[in-house]
Nucleic acid binder design. Structure first.
Lengths: 152, 152
DNA sequence: TTCAGTAGGTTTATTTTATAAACTTATAAG
DNA sequence: CTTATAAGTTTATAAAATAAACCTACTGAA
């Protein structure tokens, strides 16, 4: 399998990675979630090649993860904004944050604190079951393949 | 910034991606979570270059995500097993699954069903707050940077 | 009215990675 | 003594990443 064939796999992980699995894409999404929106802002924040920023943003736009909007005319300048589909990636980002916090935080704690305004506490991401609301561990789950959803 | 400098960033997303952000790594982890353990098994499942499988497994081992264990002698053959640190990546994988299910499932539903044995229902991943237990939306959160944890 | 600066890119050349295919080592089975 | 298996490594080539320069369209200052 080649990388560009990922999108055609009958696997939701593969399909997701086909959109956000390229190098730097998740870092760009992090910046967008933190409020960055302009090309220069993202490029300077990450200090990566402009080529890559341009290519990744274009892919994210064609996949419906971000929308490109003109924020001024003469000359026309654009900014990038997460769509609802992009906002849906929040749990992915927070899961990455939590694992990094768990395994790479220093004595002074994690570099960024996430605050839940609704309950008023600093929090970390907990994966729970959509049906019973309890935290889920991989030891308590099993997977079932759906033949009708697998055309290959 | 270059890709190999990611690990040194004061960001838990960056630190996490430095371990699991390379091309194919999350697909290899998927296979490990689904029960694969041998080199050949993983390589055949993904049908990717043996070079990449070897390199990724070596990195995951040095990062403590998997452990390499001999499962037979004469000749010695090895298998790869997720460590507790690797098991901790379950929420990351499930978040990827859920996004793929949300946005790329066909009429017949997602290709793989996840069953929560404790409650007896098929489920999807829900991100909740570690403090109040409620589902978390990015609109209800704010971030705070911790200067002491940021040496740069 | 020319010069520097800003924003959002594209182009070009070079380095790094990915990929495919063949090869290696150690052994068992036929 | 040939074929097969498993777990890699090596080699050559293709694709992607990276750095740096360039382009377009303006604004504001000298």
């Amino acid at each position: 399998m080649k990388w560009h064939e990922l999108a055609g796999q009958e696997c939701s992980i593969a399909r997701t990675l086909a959109v956000i699995g390229d190098r730097w894409t998740l870092m760009i999404l992090r910046d967008l979630f933190l409020g960055a929106s302009r090309f220069e802002e993202i490029q300077r924040s990450l200090d990566i090649s402009r080529t890559i920023v341009a290519e990744r943003l274009t892919l994210l736009e064609t996949k419906g993860v971000v929308r490109r909007l003109a924020y001024q005319q003469k000359p026309t300048r654009y900014k990038y904004k997460l769509t609802p589909k992009g906002i849906d990636l929040y749990p992915v980002l927070m899961a990455l944050v939590h694992w990094g916090d768990q395994h790479y935080a220093t004595e002074v704690g994690p570099p960024v604190i996430h605050h839940h305004q609704r309950c008023g506490h600093d929090f970390s991401a907990v994966l729970t079951c959509s049906e019973c609301g309890e935290p889920v561990s991989p030891y308590e789950t099993e997977v079932r393949f759906v033949p009708e959803a697998i055309t290959a």
